[in-house]
């Protein structure tokens, strides 16, 4: 087989699968999905070191192989009813892009569920709920076997308000 064919085959895998793979996870019976290429690792919930004077959904920081990684409880951020920490509670460690730099962050969710391949056609735009639900973090809604998957835009989500790097020392001083 020539090199050209190998390359062709590799790219065709992507094309056949068509579009992107998403990791899905549960928070309070709702199923969410994020771009799997952003996921660095999935780990069980472990104790964290609190950062003083931060909102409650920022649980604190943990040490991942020598790097200090902040942990955000997505359930608290989304104000779901329960945020219990048990055996299935997991932390999804993701790379978030800001200003051309990738930051590593962890998101606490109830449980991870599956990996789906979703084509662009399957993704529908989320309806506007006005001020009831903020939809700017939602990339779209996808239907898989009668189920609805909420696709999250993690760059937007984890860069929003409190997590934004923009209001750093410059302004607080």
């Amino acid at each position: 087989m020539s090199i050209a064919q190998v390359v062709d085959k590799e790219t065709s895998i992507d094309n056949n699968e068509d579009g992107n793979q998403f990791l899905s996870f549960f928070m309070a019976d709702e199923e969410y999905g994020i771009d799997i290429l952003r996921v660095q690792e999935i780990r069980g919930w472990d104790s964290v070191t609190k950062i003083p004077n931060t909102p409650d959904y920022i649980k604190g920081v943990i040490n991942i192989r020598g790097t200090i990684v902040p942990i955000i409880d997505l359930r608290l951020k989304f104000k779901t009813d329960s945020a219990i920490y048990d055996k299935t509670t997991v932390v999804i460690v993701v790379g978030v892009k800001t200003d051309g730099k990738t930051r590593t962050m962890g998101m606490v969710v109830d449980a991870v569920s599956d990996v789906y391949s979703i084509t662009q056609e399957q993704i529908k735009e989320a309806p506007n709920f006005g001020s009831v639900v903020k939809t700017e973090f939602v990339q779209g809604l996808a239907t898989i076997d009668e189920k609805m998957l909420i696709l999250l835009e993690i760059d937007m989500l984890l860069n929003s308000d409190d997590l934004s790097v923009i209001n750093t020392a410059e302004k607080t001083d």
């Binding site: 070191t49 950062i51 003083p52 920081v61 790097t67 200090i68 902040p70 930051r103 962050m105 750093t168």
Partner: peptide, 19 residues
């Protein structure tokens, strides 16, 4: 000394973190 700003942001009263 490890920077908090690498992955998070500056926190008042905290200059960094360590392991």
């Amino acid at each position: 000394i490890k920077s908090l700003e690498t992955n998070y942001k500056k926190v008042e009263g905290i200059s960094g973190a360590t392991i």
